[in-house]
């Protein structure tokens, strides 16, 4: 039972990185970015290839972030410079990434036990060596998520961060401030997709595998967790958006875990994901129309 709780918590924290990404695009920029379903496996593909090749496991974190940022850049350029509608821009990137991911990884890849991951490499063992593998996964993930959260919170307080929040809130104002709002959108998409790819990277470390279809439904997951988190803490203005979406992500993964525990076949997982998202939309009264900002 304790193991189940630890692993659910770990899953919730890893996927909270997707929630951060979706929080930036959907909540702050008002941009439902379907490219997420492509940049998540992109992070995993890059990671799997590097691990198989024997690269430093910590380096894969940076490589995934860079790859994700590039995919955000692609969506951004398609939307901002080529004037394609936001949903379509994301779909184009997502579709292209499906092939690109397979091209990077060759095929679905498994990382065998001889390769070190961020959960088994020497620096991690030096810090958390006393813990079981399960607990170590939680500890490492917690460190990554807390660091990302603090960096994001700090960023939102900078001039650039304020301007990014302003783009989603009132893009007209950004233009009259003599700033190119398109460039800010591209920047937001790059940060968002970098975080999503980082989630894919850590999932790859955790499962020791990459599959081309692992991205399916990740945007829906991200949207659901963001809406759960923000709705729960709506009345508590001192709770930061980034904290709220972590809670949303953990709760969501817990619901899925419960569904599996009561004997739900794994094939129905995406159906449950979709149903849960619909439930969240209806119960929160948002129906995806009203967008809440930072």
């Amino acid at each position: 039972m304790l193991d189940l709780i630890v692993s659910t918590l770990t899953q919730g924290l890893i996927y909270a990185l997707i929630s951060f990404g979706v929080y930036i695009t959907y909540t702050i920029l008002d941009f439902p970015d379907l490219g997420v379903d492509g940049s998540f496996p992109l992070g995993a593909a890059v990671t799997a290839v590097m691990l198989v090749a024997g690269a430093n496991p910590y380096l894969t974190l940076l490589a995934a972030i860079a790859a994700g940022a590039l995919s955000g850049l692609a969506t951004g350029i398609i939307h901002v410079k080529l004037h394609v509608r936001n949903l379509l821009a994301g779909i184009i990137t997502q579709t292209a990434l499906f092939s690109i991911n397979l091209q990077i990884a060759g095929s679905n890849l498994t990382v065998d036990r001889s390769s070190d991951t961020i959960f088994t490499a020497a620096p991690t063992m030096a810090l958390f060596g006393g813990l079981s593998l399960l607990a170590r996964k939680l500890a490492v993930t917690l460190v990554v998520v807390v660091v990302v959260k603090l960096v994001l919170d700090a960023y939102f307080r900078t001039k650039s961060g304020l301007l990014l929040r302003a783009v989603g809130d009132n893009s007209t104002l950004v233009t009259t401030l003599a700033k190119n709002m398109g460039n800010m959108k591209i920047l937001g998409l790059m940060i968002s997709n970098a975080l999503v790819a980082l989630a894919g990277c850590i999932v790859c470390h955790e499962q020791r595998s990459f599959s081309a279809t692992m991205g399916t439904g990740q945007l829906v997951f991200g949207l659901a967790t963001v809406i759960i988190g923000i709705t729960l803490f709506r009345r508590l203005s001192f709770v930061k958006g980034t904290t709220a979406v972590i809670v949303g992500s953990v709760l969501y993964k817990a619901c899925i875990q419960v569904a599996i525990s009561v004997g739900l076949p794994a094939n129905l997982l995406k159906l449950i994901t979709a149903a849960l998202f619909l439930l969240v939309l209806v119960c929160s009264g948002r129906k995806g129309e009203e967008i809440i900002h930072a």
């Binding site: 960023y155 307080r157 900078t158 001039k159 650039s160 961060g161 304020l162 301007l163 929040r165 302003a166 104002l173 401030l177 003599a178 700033k179």
Partner: peptide, 18 residues
């Protein structure tokens, strides 16, 4: 935050405190 944004018009919006 609104006033700070406007106050910075004409300068760069970098990573210094907003």
């Amino acid at each position: 935050e609104n006033l700070s944004l406007a106050d910075n018009k004409g300068r760069s919006y970098g990573l210094t405190r907003g």
